[in-house]
């Protein structure tokens, strides 16, 4: 009997496939603040994320508390829209998990890998349950068109078409209404939706340079599109891609939330005491969460590096944090000035 250690395992790993064909992984991540006044304890986090009996909640402490639930599966038999408007019939299971970072931020994420090679007819359900997290098309489909079609769909999903967002939204709602949470989040914030695709190109595809595109659609919707050359399949395992996308979604949410708070506080004219009062929960609950790329595997760090150059997430973050500290300094000076004038008057 042997016990073998494996890193946080992702069951739908394209890198494990010997087939040299193209495939695409798609998913959606919801990111928001836990409905809880304080940072959620390790114990409560474990209980909240215990979604599947017999499977562990994976917790880590460095460089920030992080917990990941096991995956739960949902069966689907529906269409996926391609970029040219075609509907491709797909069957299989999608997987959903939840993650909590810093005891504060909840993310639910639903994903699947689509195998576009196509079978002629729907197979026995046991075929699909033996391959959790994998969708198979009925009839051949083009992986590029599937990826582009999924990424382009940022609005409502047509009935009968794969709705991974609804699956992760349901889990988010279920977790948010858990009795383990007190229902009182410390600040008002919005949820973000991050749709992502990872196109694993075929052995014969000449595209040899990895690509990552991040698009902000409106206040809440983002897309991440990754193109993974054949030679880099091993580095860009699906588990690593999931981690990267959650990390990007998390930091985008923290930055978005901080920016919204600053906008709100800036609009309060004159009353600096009130403004600073509003800053306290932001400082206590958000500022320590900024650790871009901390959980991302080294081989994928170049994606973060690229986004740091353009648009420069950390640049914007540092500017925002600087603004907050300036407000505090000014407020302190104001208070000291007040004390000084009181003393002079006295």
């Amino acid at each position: 009997m042997r016990a073998q250690e494996t890193p946080a395992y992702s069951p739908t790993d394209p890198a494990r496939d010997t087939a040299a064909t193209a495939s695409v992984a798609v998913g959606e991540i919801r990111t928001g603040l836990l409905r809880h006044g304080a940072s959620l304890t390790t114990d409560a986090t474990e209980r909240l994320l215990d979604l599947l009996p017999g499977e562990p909640v994976l917790q880590s402490r460095r460089p920030i508390d992080h917990a990941l639930s096991p995956d739960v599966a949902n069966g689907v038999d529906c269409n996926v829209l391609t970029s040219n408007g075609a509907r491709v019939h797909t069957v299989g299971t999608v997987l959903t998990h939840a993650a909590i970072t810093g005891g504060r931020v909840l993310q639910t994420s639903t994903y699947a890998r689509i195998d576009p090679a196509g079978s002629r007819h729907r197979r026995s359900w046991a075929h699909y349950t033996a391959r959790p997290g994998r969708l198979e098309t009925l009839g051949r489909a083009d992986a590029d068109e599937l990826a582009a079609g999924f990424a382009a769909l940022t609005g409502a999903v047509a009935p009968g078409c794969l709705d991974v967002g609804a699956v992760c939204e349901r889990l988010a709602r279920r977790l948010q209404s858990s009795p383990l949470l007190d229902g009182c989040p410390p600040i008002k914030s919005q949820w973000t939706r991050t749709r992502w695709t990872a196109l694993f190109v075929s052995k014969h595809d000449e595209r040899a340079v990895p690509r990552a595109d991040f698009v902000l659609y409106d206040e809440n919707v983002r897309t991440i599109s990754l193109l993974i050359p054949y030679a880099l399949r091993e580095s860009y395992r699906l588990g690593a891609v999931l981690e990267l996308c959650r990390d990007l979604a998390l930091h985008d949410w923290v930055l978005t939330t901080l920016s919204q708070r600053i906008k709100r506080i800036s609009s309060v004219s004159g009353d600096r005491t009130r403004a600073v009062g509003e800053l306290y929960p932001t400082i206590s609950h958000l500022l320590h969460l900024w650790m871009p790329g901390a959980r991302v595997e080294p081989q994928l760090a170049r994606v973060w590096d690229g986004f740091e150059r353009q648009p420069g997430f950390t640049r914007q973050w540092n500017t925002s944090v600087g603004w907050i500290r300036d407000q505090l300094s000014l407020h302190t000076l104001q208070l000291l000035g007040g004390l000084e004038s009181n003393r002079t008057a006295g």
Binding site: L52, P53, G54, A73, N74, G75, V76, D77, C78, N79, V91, T93, V94, T110, W125, T129, V157, P159, G160, C161, L162, D163, V164, A166, V167, R170
Partner: peptide, 24 residues
């Protein structure tokens, strides 16, 4: 709870049109 572990992994066979928008 051995049987509960297996029960937890049950995923109902979907009929055509099951797109994830509704709970199973």
């Amino acid at each position: 709870e051995v049987a509960a572990i297996v029960a937890g992994r049950l995923v109902s066979v979907p009929v055509e049109g099951t797109d994830g928008s509704r709970p199973p």
